[in-house]
Amino acid sequence: MAGDNQTVSEYIVHHLTNLTYGKLPGGYERYDGSVVADGGAWVMAHGGAEAADMGFTAVHVDSMAWSIGLGVLFSALFFRVARKASSGVPSGFVNAVEMIVQFIDNTVRDTFHGRNPLIAPLALTIFVWIFLMNLMDLVPVDIVPELMMLLGVEYQKIVPSTDPNITFGLSIGVLILILFYSIKVKGFGFAKELALNPFNHPVFIPVNLFMEIVGLLAKPFSLALRLFGNMYAGEMIFILIAALFGAGMAWMVPAGILQIGWAIFHILVITLQAFIFMVLTIVYLSMAHEDH
């Protein structure tokens, strides 16, 4: 546990706080009593309250770094395979990558009935990237934060997909693609679809517009919240189990069993969530391409 004089709730809160770098407004009184100069200052937040007071002008350094780091890892691994890809006999890691690519290709072909060279690589990126981000959930919750504490970094949340910023970032990316392809494929038809569905009468245009726009926005919301909810809950249970380890010697064995059980179950969850996000993205983009 991080610091022996912590209470359990402090321990949990510590695990759920992002390492935040952001701009505090001028005149803000910091945790040590110092006051931020006029015009504000970019600083590392100390604790959740300061991070919250930074508002929108802040970056979760840990989420961002882990997310981009895992993205780079994915790109590097797959790029290496892509460079030596040949029609000869594949072996080792190339085999594994090709299996994933084949799987994605089949899924896209089954779900997406158009011709768009973006969809398959998009699906591959989403699947592998989200899978890697979720995979960080299986790293024991204390290892990285403790190591980081030794290095002088106060907070560290290593599962990017437990940060709504990350999941919403992904789903907003998908929303942008949905809008882009809807307009590109349907043109003015997209506006008509929004305005004249489901009640095809001019009087109902406001009602239709409202319903369709809610429907449209529900897509990224459901994508982001589903992934975030699942991973956040999973992470929370890992943290609670970890807290149980600190409850005394008698709790070691049950906590260990719980830890193993939940970790095994979570292997399924992280794969499933990555897959769901990918499939729904393909489905939404497939709908965006359908011209009635």
Partner: peptide, 15 residues
């Protein structure tokens, strides 16, 4: 659970 610039960063990284 603050929504902040991380969101924008993630969208850019995504693309």
């Amino acid at each position: 659970m603050n929504i902040n610039l991380t969101l924008i960063g993630q969208v850019i990284a995504f693309f």
